[in-house]
């Protein structure tokens, strides 16, 4: 079995160093929060102006003035801080965030990320904070399924969707493999229920086996 969404989130959470300042993107990356050890000292940043964001609000206890980037009602932890949008994005652009975790449509072998726009003629482009996070965080983790619903790989020699940022991704966490982006191409760090040869065959790009 390839990893479930929850199990994949646990793998990402495992690799976030204690004490990190972290931004989790909308969608799948949000699940990582559930797997962070409360004693790890990891501080969550949300782009709409908050550090030390807590879990989603309990039903009945929602506060419309306290939401996350996905507009979901959340809570504050002791030590939380609020700030305006220019400060929030200075934290990204200025290199103050240790890690961000983003979803992806495609990632290229050199770490180009496409995650904001399909480029389809009827698509409504919406970028939000994706470009700022991709160029700003010290380490950019991508969290996605390895293969799209039609079976095509999301890890590709060249992105065909419009880029979010070139050469920004450090590590790619998927349901079947974790890959490290290096100057010399992609290294396979771990596999989840797939043979190395099968993965290499389906990805149509050079891989290096770096499993411990």
């Amino acid at each position: 079995m390839s990893l479930s969404k929850s199990a994949l989130a646990a793998v990402v959470a495992r690799d976030i160093p204690p004490g990190s300042y972290v931004n989790l993107g909308i969608g799948l990356p949000t699940l990582v929060a559930e797997h962070l050890d409360p004693t790890s000292g990891v501080v969550l940043h949300t782009e709409n102006g908050m550090l030390n964001m807590g879990p989603a609000a309990e039903p009945g206890a929602e506060d419309p003035d306290l939401t996350n980037a996905g507009k979901i009602p959340v809570t504050e932890l002791p030590g939380a801080a609020y700030f305006h949008h220019a400060d929030s994005f200075a934290m990204m652009r200025g290199g103050h965030l240790d890690v961000c975790v983003l979803g992806a449509f495609q990632v290229s072998a050199r770490g180009d990320l496409a995650n904001w726009h399909t480029g389809a003629p009827d698509a409504i482009p919406a970028v939000g904070g994706a470009m700022d996070l991709a160029i700003g965080a010290k380490r950019v983790f991508v969290m996605t399924t390895m293969f799209a619903k039609d079976g095509s790989p999301k890890i590709v020699p060249e992105c065909t969707y419009p880029l979010t940022a070139p050469a920004c991704v450090d590590r790619i966490y998927t349901d079947v493999a974790t890959l490290q982006v290096t100057g010399a191409g992609l290294e396979v760090l771990e596999l989840h229920d797939i043979e190395y040869a099968t993965l290499a065959d389906r990805l149509e790009l050079p891989l290096k086996d770096a499993r411990q």
Binding site: H85, A86, R93, V127, G129, M131, I135, G136, L163, A165
Partner: peptide, 26 residues
């Protein structure tokens, strides 16, 4: 981009003529 939107507003209020940002390059 959201951070560029925020910074363009900040610049507008602060009398800055323009600014260079790394966001969106490429």
């Amino acid at each position: 981009p959201q951070g560029t939107l925020a910074e363009r507003l900040r610049a507008g209020g602060a009398g800055i003529g323009a600014f260079y940002s790394p966001t969106g390059v490429g």
